[in-house]
Every structure is written in C-alpha cells, then in structure tokens.
C-alpha cells in the first residue's frame, strides 16, 4: 500500500488496534498484519516513536506486563479515555473523507 496513506492514518490504525485490548509493540505489528490479511506492513522504526508520542499525548498509557524474551517486563499500551475519544473523532473524520471520495467517484 501507499506508505503515505499509512503514515497519514497511523494514529487511527494504532488506536483501532488497541481498541480491543492492551498489546505490546511487537504484538501490535502482528495484529495489524493478521487483521488486514497482511495489508498493513508497518516499518517498526516508525511504530515505536508513534506509540511513545501517543502515550505522551495521553491517548495511550503504558503498563508493564509479563516478562519478555529479554527477561524484562513487556510494555503494554492501553487505550485511555482520551484515546477512545480521539479514535471516535478520527474514525468519523476518516469515514467522512472516504465517503466523499466514493461520492466523487460515483460509487
């Protein structure tokens, strides 16, 4: 897929993935692939800064979970109330946009 599309909607995608429940970084990538049949292929280098930015913005909260393969607790990302509200707003915005594009195309 066009990487610009992915980049432009990264927050929406991440918040959507985490809507179902907390996940850690690698699991988020896996979920994105599995739930879209491999359509979303994140560059990991952009995933972690995005997660940390959303956490700093209060959209996500970090929680330490079970020990990972390096013997350290895994960091899970949890959708906050603010993040849930942002997700609703972004989803509505995205739906409006794609609806307009579809109408333009006569679909």
């Amino acid at each position: 897929m066009n990487p610009d599309l992915l980049r432009g909607n990264l927050d929406l995608i991440l918040l959507t993935i985490l809507e179902r429940g907390p996940l850690y970084g690698f699991a988020i990538l896996q979920a994105a692939k599995e739930r879209t049949g491999g359509y979303f292929e994140f560059k990991e280098g952009s995933l972690y800064p995005a997660l940390h930015r959303l956490e700093q913005d209060g959209q996500l909260a970090g929680q330490l979970g079970e020990l990972g393969r390096n013997g350290k607790p895994r960091k899970y990302y949890v959708l906050t109330d603010a993040g849930r509200q942002t997700l609703q707003d972004k989803r509505a915005e995205f739906n409006a946009f794609t609806g307009a594009v579809q109408r333009l195309s006569g679909l």
Partner: peptide, 17 residues
Amino acid sequence: AELGSPARVSAGMTQVY
C-alpha cells in the same frame, strides 16, 4: 534490518521527548 535505521527510531523518539 526489519527494524530499520536506528537513526530513524532515534529521530522519532527525540521528536517525542
């Protein structure tokens, strides 16, 4: 290789923090 350039990660994190 899949994780990509560390400079990219560093740049992204620096922007955040």
